[in-house]
């Protein structure tokens, strides 16, 4: 049951890669001559119509600590991850638990393009043209039981292929979770590609979660297990430091991270003189998702 949600952005809004790179060169040149402050803004700067980031930006600036904590580490190290064959174990409170082969899953799914804002908890952001399908459709394959309230996710853990896991930066494997209604929301997708190409390893190949109204770390990469539960599941950053990273981690300009403000963000790709832009409530998806949190104090459940 795809097409529950329609993009307000289409492929026509995607800056062709070549043109985007030209624009960056122009901006860099302009910055060097002192004009950067005006030209360095994201083109148009309109919140409704952000130009997606280039393939190069999206695939070279990543947080994927299993391959190193530096932003360029995943692009350098993630080639060692073997992504085929791949299966996802779906278990817990489902009617048909088991290992679901990715090829079989994809044969049943209707891939769509979703151009989403992506906001990192570290106050930077991108716009990414994903391809994927709604998580709800995947959960339908397994049949969610009535008692289920939450969905737990787990990233693959293979120390021999993932050099960053030799260090106890987090308690591996990386784990995340959503409330069931969040997981079933039509904005929530499992993505398998970017710009029409297969998902690069550093971005979470072969399949990852994308929850566009939450901070990026909720959108767990290289998923190998999905468990339906009746209790709030373990979430890696939340467990590491519950004061700094809440279970919900909805993008919210009014609730600061203890170490930095979340009121503004910097779009990646604007060069050395990029200006900050205001962060939008629920990352600009307030109309779609605010209803999920009605009556909740978002400063308490951050």
């Amino acid at each position: 049951m795809a097409r529950r949600w329609t993009n307000d952005l289409t492929t026509a809004d995607v800056t062709p890669e070549a043109l985007f790179l030209n624009r960056r060169q122009l901006m860099t040149g302009a910055a060097a001559t002192g004009l950067g402050l005006t030209l360095g803004r994201p083109a148009g700067a309109a919140e409704e119509m952000p130009a997606p980031n280039s393939w190069e930006d999206i695939t070279s600036y990543n947080n994927y600590y299993e391959f190193g904590t530096g932003k360029s580490d995943p692009a350098e190290n993630a080639h060692s991850l073997i992504t085929a064959p791949w299966s996802i174990r779906i278990d817990g409170l489902v009617d048909r638990p088991g290992d679901y082969d990715l090829t079989d899953i994809l044969a049943k799914m209707d891939l769509e393009e979703r151009i989403y804002r992506f906001r990192c908890v570290e106050a930077w952001s991108m716009v990414v043209p994903w391809q994927g399908f709604e998580l709800a459709d995947l959960l339908d394959l397994a049949g969610v039981q009535d008692a289920a309230r939450y969905v737990a996710f787990e990233t693959v853990l293979r120390p021999e292929e993932m050099p960053g896991t030799r260090y106890p930066v987090l308690d591996w494997p990386y784990r995340e979770g959503l409330r069931l209604d969040e997981a079933l929301h039509p904005l929530t997708i499992m993505a398998t590609g970017i710009y029409g190409k297969p998902m690069p390893n550093q971005n979470g190949a072969p399949i990852r979660l994308v929850v566009p109204w939450k901070y990026g770390f909720k959108s767990i990469k290289s998923v190998v297990r999905i468990t339906l539960t009746d209790q709030e599941p373990y979430a890696s950053w939340n467990a590491y430091n519950p004061r700094e990273y809440g279970f919900y981690s909805n993008v919210n300009p009014n609730v600061d991270h203890p170490r930095w403000s979340q009121a503004t963000e910097r779009r990646i790709g604007g060069g050395l003189f990029a200006r900050r832009s205001p962060t939008l409530m629920f990352n600009g998806y307030e109309d779609e998702v605010a209803v999920l949190y009605e009556g909740m104090d978002l400063a308490t459940y951050f």
């Binding site: 860099t28 910055a31 070279s60 600036y61 930077w124 990646i268 050395l272």
Partner: peptide, 8 residues
């Protein structure tokens, strides 16, 4: 200035 420090 010239892109040698990556996208950010």
């Amino acid at each position: 200035l010239t892109g040698g420090l990556g996208p950010e």
